[in-house]
Design a protein around this nucleic acid. Sequence first.
DNA 1: AAAATACTTCTTGTCGACAAGGAAAATGCA
DNA 2: TGCATTTTCCTTGTCGACAAGAAGTATTTT
Lengths: 234, 234
Amino acid sequence: MIEQATKDVVERRRGSGVKLVYDILRDEILDLKLAPGSPVDEVLLAERFQMSRTPIREALVRLAGEGLIETLPNRSTLVSNIDLLNLNTYFDALVLMYRVTTRLAAQNHNAADLVAIRQLHHQYAATVEARDLREMIAVNAAFHTAIAEAGRNPYFTGLFRRLLDEGRRILRLYYNSYEEQFPQRFVDEHDEIIAAIEGRDLEAADRLGKIHGEQIVEQVQRMFARNQKLDIAL
Amino acid sequence: MIEQATKDVVERRRGSGVKLVYDILRDEILDLKLAPGSPVDEVLLAERFQMSRTPIREALVRLAGEGLIETLPNRSTLVSNIDLLNLNTYFDALVLMYRVTTRLAAQNHNAADLVAIRQLHHQYAATVEARDLREMIAVNAAFHTAIAEAGRNPYFTGLFRRLLDEGRRILRLYYNSYEEQFPQRFVDEHDEIIAAIEGRDLEAADRLGKIHGEQIVEQVQRMFARNQKLDIAL
DNA sequence: AAAATACTTCTTGTCGACAAGGAAAATGCA
DNA sequence: TGCATTTTCCTTGTCGACAAGAAGTATTTT
């Protein structure tokens, strides 16, 4: 059935619609399936998800609360643009949160946390092996989120999650066409980070988190510089 | 007219209702005019603000997104409780953000920022003088928010604002009946912080931010300890 | 033909009504 | 009386319809 591609679900439990729409749209935005700046039409979404505009709207309000979409009063709502001009403030926040969450994980994790972290680590290695870019980016974010959760500080976890979300969009933006040697190095660094956490070595965890974060920042900056050259060349 | 006390406004511009409700409810929650755990009834609010439940609901969704209210599916929505058991994670986040935002303000502020900061500083001193507790707490939060804004990192500013909001509730909780010598010391510390920012002394700003944060944490912990004794004594 | 004005269209914002889920109250049964 | 079951009630969740604001298009006026 081809219709299945555009319509989702038929019968739902009361109250589940908002979460469904929120989750799907969030993923589509973060995977750049919905391009930054593209319009988000409530009526279209209502048709697609087979529900009225009310729950759609509620999902959109939540997405707007996280800055993933922007609402122009009385006119339209758009997928938020990626702010490339202020990347440095993004990087500042990202690196600090890498440090803090990894350090706290070393301090506060329990056995179950380590199991979850390792599981995602293996999953990440597998996606690298398979060269599945979209999954790689998503699983990497999940891996670091799991570390943050193990740190047991919901304030940091919340900010970090938002930063990793934004990172998914930025990475996809640059990794759209070509590939890098990026992956394997990061698998190794993940290994070291896990070891530091398990050994409850706060300073090492902090240091490795910082290095890992800066590694990613450099990578993105390199890609950014090269892309700018390409733009000029055209 | 006595009715005016419970009803607000009569004519509004389309789209302004949500912001109105959001702002008012947010303030009422942060000032503990709405007690933690107390119910938030959509129908009552609709009557009070003279509008339908739809815009009320949207405001509530936004408040829920910031963790100020909690929604029990199909049942009721409540003002979020203050999590006193996990105060240490709150303090960790608060102190770090005091440091980071003050440091960044020293680095990135401009002349206009300093004017705004000084203005709030004077306002704070005035509320201390007047012993107006509610204003004191609110203006203090605004003062530090202004410093964070001068730091020009929206990620940190966003988290810090949420932490200061939560701080408003915690402070009000303890300062409900009796007073402290708390104020004057903080006015002086604010002075020092402003000087460090103006002098673009990053290390000093960082250090003073840390001290200031820890100062407040200590104060709250002292009050907390004493209150516990009181509870036991009763 | 250019500018101002009116009209159309498109999308969001708001409304009133109804349905569903859950909790408490009322009822039936042993 | 004690317990299970039904009923009522209260609040939220969803719907379809309509109104308002803004942008673009057509029309009039000079």
